[in-house]
Design a protein around this nucleic acid. Structure first.
Lengths: 153, 153
DNA sequence: AGGGTTTTTTCGGAAAACCTAACAAATCAG
DNA sequence: CTGATTTGTTAGGTTTTCCGAAAAAACCCT
């Protein structure tokens, strides 16, 4: 239905609105790293599609529908980012790469990533798991291997 | 340097060549779900960029450079797919979503996903881990919780 | 209120991908 | 070898997304 880019704009509008109370063309442009004319163009298209309400020289507001979509994207973003941070991807990179991944993933995929995040974080052994993973990343070896727990040769 | 789409074409050409020995316009079109004219257009562009060697009415061959890039993408694809399959995303969906993710991810992200895959698969407790994860996905509960292993309240 | 600054908008244009329709080349079958 | 079929190419056109330059509106300061 909506393109990747259109979704990016909706998400940006949501974030800016939450932060500042209103979204101005200039802020959207800065957030997305594009020039104002591009924003005006997209915002016009989003308006025609009923995703935002936009009146010239006035701010941009998400409609009910637009807001819902923006929220879904944002949630996906947060899930993916959380996952990436668990496996030690630095926050900034995790955020950027979540932007890349947050569109077009199958619902099952998103659900399973979410499950993984909860599963790992909620696990009784979470601190240990994380510690072992970190050690594995640097040494390439399982800290608990060779302790008679059934490691294959 | 190369667009997402351009990378998709390179990857498709690599796969087809590996499978059939040579890549024809039609096969590329079918693989990528586009029409032949689109393939001709892109292949011409890739030729100009030195990524493939293409002579009309004859097949398409990857150059040294093009082949290297295609291989990198393919490896990323395989890593991501392996990860998704570990967390029980069905093979077909995993493959499709790997296509979505394989472009533009930071090297650190790819590396860490790879580390995760190896870490989990290589772990002494892998079969148990998987079983627990599956159970968690269906029941929402950790099978080993409440067995005195330090689960937080 | 007037003048300067900032912000927004319009306009024309470009690149990337895609398409259909029509034409050209290659291939295959008798 | 020739006609039918398949495959590939060209031409022309669309959509999405971006841009710079210039005009217009809004804002701010004295």
């Amino acid at each position: 239905m909506l393109s990747r880019k259109a979704e990016d704009y909706l998400e940006a509008i949501l974030n800016i609105t939450e932060e500042k109370g209103h979204a101005r063309i200039k802020d959207i442009a800065i957030t997305l790293g594009v020039r104002p004319p591009s924003v005006v163009e997209m915002v016009n298209r989003l308006d025609k599609k009923g995703m935002v309400e936009y009146r010239k020289y006035d701010g941009v507001k998400l409609t009910e529908v637009g807001g819902k979509i923006a929220l879904i994207i944002k949630e996906r973003h947060d899930i993916i980012k959380a996952f990436l941070e668990i496996i030690n991807v630095p926050e900034k990179i995790a955020d950027k790469d979540a932007c890349t991944m947050e569109h077009e993933l199958h619902a099952i995929t998103t659900t399973q990533i979410k499950n993984l995040v909860i599963f790992v974080k909620d696990a009784p052994e979470y601190p240990q798991w994380l510690e072992h993973f970190n050690e594995f990343c640097t040494t390439g070896k399982h800290p608990c291997a060779g302790r008679g727990r059934g490691h294959k040769t």
